[in-house]
């Protein structure tokens, strides 16, 4: 190894390390804070590692708030949203890539239009709609709301992805007498799996983290999702920082796990989908 490559390598790893520290420091600080006993929170200088570390904050917050119930609610809502958004976007993507669509542009504009509505603009009309339908305090209201936000992006990725699946396969299947629906379900969908997984992950994350709609659409404490449960820990006077961080980490853990397991699909899907084939 020559000196210059050694230098380049050192610089490379150093840059990476600095970037890593900068990006992960806040998360480290969350973990660190959540493990501190209450007396240590305001210590000055702050402790970077508490020798008296404890899970007390986790136990306390779990004892006072039904976080598991909130997690289950979040899980139901996020899963429901994922199912709705992925099915609808897969259908859309198939329609788009397999037929000659006359109003394609209009449809795309429409899709994108829906993606950029400021959430705060929609709170009241959306609540009115859901209350007219009698859906306040139901999972369905949240699933419908989040699906509408997730769908455009999901469709965008899948359109790119489906386009990369050769239409000859459809033709071959059609000659064998398969119906459109068969082709969609048995030929295209299996091939589009990485794309579907990625879209599912995006959608799940979006639904898991969303707050404002859950805030207004659920009033029953049994229906709260985790984002609302965590927000309710912030008082005007009182923020138990260690408990808040503990709750936030408990709330983020499921998505972190899912993303850790499935993360390679993300890059794959964007590679296939976002580029024009």
């Amino acid at each position: 190894m020559t000196r210059s490559t050694l230098l380049t390598r050192t610089a490379f790893w150093l840059t990476l390390a600095v970037a890593l520290v900068v990006f992960l420091f806040p998360i480290y600080w969350m973990v660190n804070t959540s493990l501190k006993p209450s007396e240590e929170i305001f210590l000055s200088p702050p402790t970077f590692y508490s020798v008296n570390w404890t899970f007390d904050a986790y136990f306390d917050v779990l004892a006072n708030r039904p976080l598991f119930r909130y997690l289950i609610n979040s899980f139901i809502v996020a899963t429901g949203t994922t199912i709705v958004a992925v099915s609808l976007s897969a259908l859309t993507a198939y329609g788009f890539t397999r037929f000659k669509i006359r109003f394609a542009t209009a449809f795309i504009v429409f899709l994108i239009f829906t993606k950029m509505l400021p959430e705060t603009l929609l709170i009241i009309p959306y609540f009115q709609l859901m209350s007219k339908l009698g859906l306040i305090n139901t999972y369905l209201s949240l699933i419908l709301a989040y699906s509408s936000f997730a769908l455009p992006f999901a469709a965008w990725i899948l359109i790119g992805f489906f386009r990369s699946i050769p239409t000859e396969l459809d033709e071959a299947a059609m000659i064998d007498g398969a119906s459109r629906l068969d082709i969609f379900l048995k030929v295209v969908l299996p091939l589009a799996r990485p794309g579907l997984v990625a879209v599912a992950m995006f959608t799940f994350l979006l639904a898991w983290n969303a707050y404002v709609f859950a805030l207004v659409l659920t009033t029953d404490a049994d229906m709260f999702v985790i984002s609302v449960g965590v927000a309710n820990l912030v008082g005007e006077y009182q923020v138990e920082w260690n408990e808040l961080m503990a709750a936030a980490l408990v709330g983020a853990a499921p998505v972190l796990v899912i993303f850790s397991i499935l993360n390679r699909h993300l890059v794959e899907a964007i590679t296939a989908g976002a580029l024009k084939g």
Binding site: V84, S87, L88, T92, F110, A145
Partner: peptide
């Protein structure tokens, strides 16, 4: 084609266009 595109279209029309 309509059958494939309609669900998303109707859904979005409903939950986005109306509000």
């Amino acid at each position: 084609a309509a059958a494939f595109l309609a669900p998303a279209f109707i859904f979005l029309a409903f939950v986005v266009v109306f509000p």
